[in-house]
Design a protein around this nucleic acid. Structure first.
Length: 274
DNA sequence: GAACCGATTAACT
DNA sequence: GTTAATCGGTTCG
């Protein structure tokens, strides 16, 4: 069994190859980029279509998929607007994982010293940041993790998803986390450990580089739905995580999270006093 | 090519 | 609170 082999004592550590992962997992996010939003073998089970003027009364009680117009907001606005919305991931076996977005960070583009697009840098890696709002930007970090971003309005601007509150498919998320986590001591992850970090949520939702540059408004394997109506969550604005603490841009309050939500990755008590 | 390093995690004290 | 793990992407010579 490839996973066990890779853990043999003294053996050079080896990440699961795509082929190996696909043997273990029901879905390793290896679907090719769909040419059409809902083409392929499961077209008849496609995700809800974008809201539009033709929407009938039938859909008023059903989840509405967020479309390109929603993502077309300045980064900091979009980062706040994401809070409370529902991220849906459909695996290749049609299992749907649902989670509420509870923590985000905005990266504002070339002038933002903490952004990958700082100084106007545009490379093969960060191309997604420069594509139309709603385009995903997935990058590898520390050689072993992924981070998921959504392009916003503004050249080279995007929003990093940092934490989710799992709603549906928790046992699948738990299995994905255990299988993909390097520590993998066999212990079961608690609910609040499933998606409480930018790379944890990528493991829990089986998101990898194959999602880079996909369109969240039309993709068949992942989309966003308007969260259920309810009281407005209290939003905390704090400094961003992992970008150092020196410099003008490190001080800006571009991280947003739902006050009191136990699924947030890091609380900032000082920011909460404000 | 080589050197450097990171929008993190998990295990440890 | 500290630190090892781990390697693709970027930069530099």
């Amino acid at each position: 069994f490839p996973l066990q082999l890779s853990r043999r004592v003294g053996q050079k550590k080896q990440r699961l190859s795509d082929a190996e992962t696909s043997q273990i997992l029901p879905d390793a996010a290896r679907m090719p980029y769909p040419k059409e939003p809902c083409s392929g073998p499961h077209a008849c089970l496609g995700p809800p279509t974008t809201t539009g003027p033709q929407r009938s009364i039938y859909f008023l009680n059903h989840p509405a998929r967020l479309g390109s117009e929603f993502f077309d907001q300045p980064g900091a606005h979009l980062a706040r607007a994401f809070l409370g919305q529902v991220l849906v991931r459909r695996l290749t076996d049609n299992t749907e994982l649902r989670s509420r977005i509870v923590e985000t960070e905005a990266y504002l583009g070339p002038e933002d010293d903490a952004a990958h697009s700082r100084g106007g840098r545009q490379t093969a890696r960060n191309r997604g940041m420069f594509m139309k709002p709603g385009t995903l930007y997935v990058y590898t970090i520390y050689g072993m993790y992924f981070c998921l971003n959504v392009s916003s309005r503004g050249d080279g601007a995007c929003v990093l998803l940092r934490a989710l509150e799992p709603l549906e498919g928790l046992e699948t998320m738990r299995r994905l986390r255990s299988t993909l986590s390097k520590g993998a001591s066999g212990r079961a992850f608690k609910d609040h450990e499933l998606c409480s970090g930018p790379s944890k949520l990528c493991q829990a939702l089986a998101i990898d580089k194959s999602f880079d540059q996909r369109d969240l408004a039309t993709d068949g394997a992942m989309w966003m739905e308007r969260g259920p109506p309810g009281p407005e969550p209290v939003v905390v604005a704090a400094t961003r995580v992992g970008i150092g603490c020196k410099g003008e841009w490190a001080q800006k309050l571009l991280r947003f999270y739902v006050l009191g939500n136990p699924f947030v990755s890091m609380v900032d008590r000082a920011a909460e006093q404000m």
